[in-house]
């Protein structure tokens, strides 16, 4: 097709395009669309359904943010990216907000000029083995063959862990999760290691998931969190507090179903502040006071989003674990909205 006419269209686009500046919030409001960077496909976190609609844990946070900022959770344009293109997509302005199961690290924060907004999923690298091996701890894995995705941090973590334990292993290098699944099931490796959420998702696809166990050791910290471009504090504030509001909402029992009712008759002052019945907290971050109400109504609070996409009732069946609220034994702890 169509080089010439696309060129013309491209030139026209280039001329009309607004220059991205530090005022992402205004830009997003003006364009009426939130460009949200997601992965091209990861079980439970981002995937497309039969109608081509994006779904998943990260995707729901994008929608909640769009609902808070633009008033409509469907005003999101998803920018699917690979691990290699995600940060350039953000820094070049193709996307305004990154929710792409991205581990928060110091170098990314400092060197890549990102501003991380918090953590929406605490992950960590784990091990999966066949029950028949009789292994109950990663410390018994000396000499095991391990399926490991090449070129990832998990590969480095694995080497570190085995060296620290004074054990040896035989790596079986693989490229994709699917390849790992096949190799592991055919017995080419005794152990498959990757992020615990990925292990659980993979195990869910086995014919007999119960024959395989995840070992209790988690050998790395993989806090996955959203990010925006560095140097745009107004935008970072707005998006960060959407995430915090969703976590707070779970703490105070505000759900998509009862949010309206709670906003009308707030049972306590905390809820009143979150839902905009008291104070003007939305205006402080450049939004209106119903921002959190809309975000919660778009896809529910943190717990609802988790349960719908990853929780025990889904095919993936992850427990909350670290991702439970601090009051339920997890480490999910959002600063108060006040």
């Amino acid at each position: 097709m169509k080089l010439k006419s696309i060129l013309v269209a491209g030139a026209a686009l280039a001329m009309t395009a607004t220059v991205a500046n530090a005022a992402t919030l205004e830009d997003v409001k003006a364009s009426g669309e939130l460009n949200c960077i997601v992965t091209t496909g990861l079980v439970g976190f981002a995937y497309t359904d039969a109608n081509g609609r994006w779904n998943g844990f990260d995707v729901d946070f994008c929608r909640a943010t769009a609902a808070a900022v633009l008033g409509d959770g469907d005003k999101v344009k998803f920018v699917p990216t690979t691990g290699k293109t995600r940060f350039t997509a953000l820094s070049s302005g193709e996307g305004d907000l990154l929710y792409r199961n991205t581990t928060v690290t110091m170098s990314r924060d400092a060197d890549l000029k990102l501003t991380f907004l918090g953590v929406n999923y605490y992950d960590g690298q784990g091990f999966m083995v066949n029950k028949a091996l009789g292994v109950t701890s990663a410390k018994q894995l000396n000499g095991a063959s391990v399926c490991i995705q090449t070129g990832t941090t998990t590969e480095l973590n694995l080497a570190d862990y085995f060296r620290a334990q004074g054990m040896s292993y035989e790596p079986v290098p693989i490229e994709t999760n699917e390849e790992a699944r096949t190799n592991y099931l055919s017995g080419r490796c005794d152990v498959y290691t990757t992020d615990a959420s990925g292990l659980a998702a993979t195990r869910a696809t086995f014919e007999n998931p119960k024959d395989h166990i995840l070992l209790p050791e988690i050998i790395s910290k993989e806090p996955l969190g959203p990010a925006v471009r560095q140097g745009d504090d107004a935008w970072a504030d707005a998006t960060r507090w959407v995430l915090n509001a969703l976590i707070e909402a779970e703490e105070y029992g505000i759900t998509a179903a009862n949010a309206d009712e709670m906003a009308a008759n707030p049972p306590n002052p905390n809820i009143a502040r979150i839902l905009g019945a008291e104070g003007n907290y939305g205006e402080m971050i450049g939004l209106d006071n119903q921002w959190a109400l809309r975000a919660i109504k778009a896809g529910g609070n943190y717990g609802e989003i988790f349960d719908r996409n990853l929780g025990p009732n889904t095919e993936i069946g992850l427990e909350r674990g670290l991702n439970a609220l601090w009051s339920n034994g997890g480490i999910l702890y959002a600063p108060p909205i006040r």
Binding site: T40, V43, A46, Y47, T48, T82, E178, A201, A204, E315
Partner: peptide
């Protein structure tokens, strides 16, 4: 083109297979 995040026929397929309902049907 999937490496730059454009979902061609293979990319769409891969993103569809990440749906927990159909996961594992590569």
């Amino acid at each position: 083109v999937i490496v730059i995040g454009m979902l061609d026929v293979l990319g769409v397929a891969k993103s569809a297979v990440s749906d927990p309902v159909w996961n594992g049907l590569s």
